[in-house]
């Protein structure tokens, strides 16, 4: 009984952690390359969920099968959010590239508030039901009471996104250019890297993962509103810092650690102080490993 309870809490934490990780991956990638804490990342996630809802609604009216709707809604949400991410970088961050880092951070917070209020006014302040786009797979039926297909899909997508982004950064031409930009922007420019394109690409990739997360998580939770990006964004940011900001596996490990600590604390002690405990844990880890669990030392930075 107790072992089963432990296992259930473990899975609950895994789900929570994977949800954080899907958002944290984009967060950490943008930071790793541009060294900007993109506070509007949570809002891109929210816009992705809204786009997914609208597209899914249209396709449901046309009577498409659920799996096709999930794929098309995800792709549409990713494309739409990429456009937002790209535009956001051009409007809010590019003019501030040479300004102190604090200015870009303030600009990011402004962007986050702007997008939140834009969706609030243009869409609705109410909670909207999000259709369950993830079908219950037949082959998962024996373990359905342990983990539902939406949870398993979230685990899988998180793993795939993490591996893909890591490989992309390590082994492709674009990845090499990204790493070069991250190490020394001016030097990269001198050797012929198109820095503007690299940064745009980073925002596009980050926004795409956020949007994918938005659609999957919203259809797992079943409801969205204009404010969902805020809390999710904060938690994902914390997870990224915990794992070592800038590191892909770090973001996933940080998210899982955060998810498990919340889940076990709720299960064995009390959910009243869930957040208090989660952040206490963060402080303790950062005291002993200031650059996060997998973070590298940045001794050359001021």
């Amino acid at each position: 009984m107790d072992l089963e309870y432990f296992f259930e809490l473990f899975l609950g934490g895994l789900t929570r952690g994977s949800i954080y990780a899907l958002i944290a991956l984009g967060y950490t990638m943008v930071y790793g390359i541009v060294e900007l804490i993109n506070f509007a990342h949570g809002e891109i996630y929210m816009i992705g969920a809204f786009t997914g809802l609208i597209v899914a609604g249209l396709l449901t009216l046309l009577g498409w099968p659920a799996l096709a709707i999930l794929v098309i809604a995800s792709i549409a949400a990713m494309i739409y959010s990429c456009a937002y991410g790209w535009t956001m970088e051009k409007i809010a961050y590019k003019p501030l590239r040479k300004a102190p880092r604090l200015s870009a951070l303030i600009s990011a917070i402004g962007m986050s508030l702007f997008l939140q209020n834009y969706v609030l006014l243009a869409q609705t302040p109410d909670f909207l039901p999000f259709p369950n786009l993830i079908p219950e797979f037949d082959f998962l039926e024996p373990i359905e009471h342990i983990a539902r297909s939406s949870e398993i899909l979230i685990y899988a997508v998180t793993a795939v996104v993490m591996v893909t982004l890591t490989l992309l950064i390590k082994f492709t031409r674009m990845g090499k250019a990204m790493r070069a930009t991250s190490q020394d922007r001016e030097m990269a420019m001198l050797v012929g890297v198109n820095v503007n394109r690299v940064i745009s690409m980073t925002f596009i990739l980050g926004s795409a993962t956020a949007a994918l997360g938005g659609v999957l998580i919203a259809s797992h939770i079943g409801q969205i509103n204009y404010y969902i990006g805020f809390l999710a964004g904060i938690k994902a940011f914390v997870a990224a810092v915990l794992g070592g900001i800038g590191s892909m596996p770090g973001a996933v490990i940080g998210s899982l650690v955060l998810g498990w600590s919340e889940s076990f604390f709720t299960g064995y002690i009390s959910s009243d102080y869930e957040d208090v405990f989660a952040f206490l844990f963060l402080v303790v880890i950062l005291i002993f490993r200031p650059s996060g669990i997998l973070g590298r030392k940045e001794s050359d930075k001021v």
């Binding site: 309870y5 809490l9 609950g12 934490g13 938690k235 709720t266 959910s271 009243d272 869930e274």
Partner: peptide, 20 residues
């Protein structure tokens, strides 16, 4: 007798606790 965090992404831990 428990308080939950409004706006959290997932309440499975609390639900498990209720079940137990």
């Amino acid at each position: 007798y428990e308080g939950i965090t409004p706006g959290a992404v997932d309440y499975s831990a609390v639900v498990q606790k209720v079940k137990r």
